[in-house]
Amino acid sequence: MQRVNMIMAESPGLITICLLGYLLSAECTVFLDHENANKILNRPKRYNSGKLEEFVQGNLERECMEEKCSFEEAREVFENTERTTEFWKQYVDGDQCESNPCLNGGSCKDDINSYECWCPFGFEGKNCELDVTCNIKNGRCEQFCKNSADNKVVCSCTEGYRLAENQKSCEPAVPFPCGRVSVSQTSKLTRAETVFPDVDYVNSTEAETILDNITQSTQSFNDFTRVVGGEDAKPGQFPWQVVLNGKVDAFCGGSIVNEKWIVTAAHCVETGVKITVVAGEHNIEETEHTEQKRNVIRIIPHHNYNAAINKYNHDIALLELDEPLVLNSYVTPICIADKEYTNIFLKFGSGYVSGWGRVFHKGRSALVLQYLRVPLVDRATCLRSTKFTIYNNMFCAGFHEGGRDSCQGDSGGPHVTEVEGTSFLTGIISWGEECAMKGKYGIYTKVSRYVNWIKEKTKLT
């Protein structure tokens, strides 16, 4: 034993070699072989497995989906700052455009905790909710729209109204504003409101030439003092309507412009014939205590009207009353817009006519005020429907199939267009061939041609 100890002390290297040989010859039971080890760690190889990531292109799944990435790591994937920024906006807080917040056709661009709407022409605001041009839906104005110097929408209202708090709607500024039905039992019968379409306001006024200088022999019209197929109006439903009495009662109609003036057809009036105007009328054979009678003290036909040349060209006249009318729910003026808007309103496509005229061709006159909704007829169809001249200051309205029309005794009465609950004068009943005849239409004086003249002559002093 002493000898062994001496050998170990003198030859430590020998001992180490012996131990190493023993270990190498022993069977290893701690580690699995290569094949079995792979069965336990069965993990798919990654895209760049075996390579240094710093030297390969980034992978979106590896960089940002398996674990949260930084902007720089995302930049490695896209290799483009702009594309990385677009991805980053949604990656950080989701897609803010998912709810489609942009209105009126706006395009949404996502941002971090926010979004941006790219608005089409005519709109602005956070969600493109603000109209900035009158060309689109009248700028959301209830009545009139004008573009300011910086191309912003400025709404306005006709006389007797003021802008509401929203700067879009119009509200009454006087007790009985024009064009409004205020009798409670008839307010439910107000005709369907007309909503502004998209309009090209630059070209809204037709490029028409008034044929002022045409000389033409007097034409022989049949029954051209021209509501057939209409309905009984309720008291106060058309408070701007008046009836004219002269040699015979209810020979023509008219509309209240203001307390002192009536507008009617020029062919209705004769110099030297006494005319009485009755406002607030409903049943011409009954006294309903809503009527107001006034005498006409002055007749002003349009300066281009000449019955000797043509009885229905420039067929418009103004009547001055001896005493002002007292405005109330049964006696209310009709609204008159400017030339541009009167023309736009007419193009809405349908209007209402009213009167006490004959209820059928050569038949009896109506006792109760009649009204009828009539569609506008395109000019080409209008011209083809008659052998008589249709001037540019006239328009056609009615039904091709016949059966409904204005008729004798309705002449001078109103053709009105309702705009968001307020009625505007767009025409004056003038003439036609018979009444409600198939293929024939009622012919009306186009008020847009005469609004400046009306307003100039009827100013209240």
Results as ranks from 00 to 15, higher is better:
L369P: 14
N393S: 14
R404E: 06
C435R: 04
V202S: 13
C178T: 01
E82Q: 15
V227F: 13
L163C: 02
E171C: 04
C157G: 00
D315I: 00
E323C: 05
C157P: 00
P120C: 02
L60V: 15
L319Q: 01
H415M: 04
K126L: 14
V227K: 10
I344D: 13
E98Y: 09
T264S: 05
E82H: 07
W356N: 03
T84D: 10
E61Y: 15
I112F: 11
N138P: 03
F224K: 13
P414V: 10
A380K: 14
G351H: 05
T426M: 01
Q216N: 09
G349F: 06
A173S: 11
C335P: 02
M8L: 11
E208I: 12
D95I: 04
K274Y: 05
F395E: 00
L32R: 10
V257Y: 03
Y371I: 12
T332S: 11
R140H: 12
Y115H: 03
G246T: 07
F360T: 15
F123T: 05
G409F: 12
F71A: 06
T332A: 13
G236K: 07
Y47K: 05
Q57H: 12
D378A: 13
R226Y: 11
L211Q: 13
I309K: 11
E66Y: 04
F87D: 15
L163P: 04
V359G: 15
R358C: 04
C119P: 01
E66G: 09
I256L: 04
V257C: 02
Q241K: 05
A366Y: 11
V374K: 03
S70R: 15
T461G: 06
Y201N: 13
R298S: 09
G58D: 14
V416A: 10
S11H: 12
H303F: 07
A192W: 11
E27S: 14
R46L: 10
Y450H: 03
V4W: 08
L244M: 07
T218G: 09
I284R: 13
P101K: 03
M65G: 03
Y330S: 03
F71H: 09
D33S: 11
T290E: 05
S107E: 12
A192C: 04
S148K: 07
E270M: 08
R75M: 14
S99C: 08
F55N: 15
N151A: 08
V296E: 00
V326W: 07
L383G: 15
N135W: 04
V377T: 05
N38M: 07
I428T: 02
H289G: 13
P375V: 08
T158N: 05
F176H: 09
N138F: 03
E456H: 10
Q237Y: 10
I136W: 08
V4K: 14
E72V: 15
G363A: 07
P235C: 03
A266E: 02
L321M: 07
N313P: 03
P333A: 06
L383P: 03
C170Y: 00
T218H: 08
E171A: 10
P197E: 07
F196K: 13
V153C: 03
G413K: 06
V30T: 15
E53L: 05
V154G: 05
S107D: 11
I275R: 01
C141V: 00
E286G: 09
V243Y: 13
E434Y: 12
